[in-house]
Design a protein around this nucleic acid. Structure first.
Lengths: 243, 243
DNA sequence: TCAACGTTTTTTCTCGAGATTTTTAAACAA
DNA sequence: TTGTTTAAAAATCTCGAGAAAAAACGTTGA
């Protein structure tokens, strides 16, 4: 029964199956609020307050928080409750480097092993992403763009046979999403995301692994560069020197 | 406060700090029982039975199980409870390959960045491991050897600055430990573990990154080869074709 | 003014009981 | 015998209340 393990490994990005339990429902709401910044980094998560906010019991919320520890979006300290995982530039640099290593390797394998159906899926995901890019001006559309961007990256490496690599990448992607929002808000470097994605698409379909991975590394690294050129006050109240 | 995040990321292998809550206590006992095979792969984990076995309440045990989902040692299915994560040869092959990629990269960085204290720690860990290897004949000593082997691998890459790489490696190490026990029980290939570790030590201290990573890849890969040469009935009742 | 101590308040952690859902088993018809 | 429907049984999921710990606060003393 491979389905179970896949679901377990990819619990972080289950396509969009309806949450069947209150725990899962609270888990998703919490994760969304953390990634989108409504629950700020390093903020204390008091169970008594949050159980009203999300309309569940204390035990249920506690269980949802335990699941978020898996994604490293929440940190639990011994007997002193839960906190939103802190952020720092050093941490994002680590996330970016690790993600580049894994995602380039996955892409290399996908290019070597992908079949026709895989190519088709990539084209479809790219098309949907392009459509979302056009109407990115409105703030509402960002939600949709973020989702389609995730799917595009996911489909690119779908032909990679390593479940573990993809599992780790999905964790890193969600981590990076927190930082990406900071970057987009301030908009320091005007990027032409469409061209980046198109170059990635063409190199991949041409089965040019060297070129594709180079573009991918550049593409992922640009968000880090953007954040590095930002004033450090974005990370208000962090530790700062972790990695 | 870097300590929190480190603890969160490395929750899977907290050095040996006393468990301060019942949840953590149950979490450790459960993880131990799963890794050592007392709770068999794919076995159903009924909360009502297990809460007696571990002497905690239902909610507490449920929370501990949620934490184990993080390590992918337990899989939770919608509204149908928890299960021990299944095992398969394909899964172990994936674990091994991914681990080789990450651990070699980490070792390369450690060799480039390690200082004198790091070298000293490696020597100390190697010495303790060697002592444990001598008395490995008895079954009791395996516990100690396994722990010192883990520390040796951990210290080797301690100088690698990437917390995320080390976090993922600690997950993979625990996963591999389940399979390693299967391999040791049957003992198909007589390995000279001491020589392997010594070669690894010498190449690392000589700062020969190419040689060290080559030895590391061979060292990690041997357990997979041993299991591949074993009859497939070791994985009784698995899916078998996942990766 | 500052530091240390003990009390009060808040928060976390833990447990058992009740409501839904899934699974199992039996009964019945074709 | 086989398949479907129904009912009983088991397990999961959820909640609120009580015990233990940590944080906050004010008081006391130098």
């Amino acid at each position: 029964m491979p389905e179970h393990q896949l679901k377990a490994l990819h619990s972080a990005n289950a396509p969009s199956a309806e949450p069947k339990t209150l725990v899962e429902s609270a888990y998703r709401s919490l994760r969304r609020d953390i990634i989108e910044g409504r629950l700020q980094p390093d903020e204390k998560l008091r169970v008594e307050h949050l159980k009203d906010r999300y309309g569940v019991g204390a035990g249920t919320l506690r269980e949802a928080l335990s699941l978020l520890v898996a994604d490293a979006l929440v940190a639990s300290q011994g007997q002193r409750g839960f906190r939103v995982a802190p952020i720092s530039l050093a941490d994002f640099a680590d996330i970016t480097r690790t993600r580049i290593m894994l995602e380039c390797e996955a892409l290399r394998q996908a290019i070597a092993l992908g079949d026709d159906a895989w190519e088709g899926d990539i084209l479809a995901a790219f098309h949907r992403l392009s459509k979302a890019e056009e109407k990115l001006s409105g703030d509402e559309a960002r939600e949709e763009w973020e989702e389609r961007n995730r799917v595009f990256h996911e489909v690119l490496i779908a032909a990679c046979p390593s479940r573990w690599t993809k599992h780790f990448l999905s964790i890193l992607y969600h981590q990076a999403e927190r930082y990406r929002r900071l970057s987009l808000y301030r908009n320091p470097i005007p990027r032409n995301l469409h061209e980046e994605h198109e170059a990635l698409l063409k190199a991949t379909l041409a089965r040019d692994a060297e070129k594709a991975t180079a573009i991918m590394a550049e593409h992922i690294g640009l968000t880090l560069k953007a954040l590095q050129q930002l004033e450090p006050d974005v990370f208000a109240g962090n530790g700062g020197t972790q990695a």
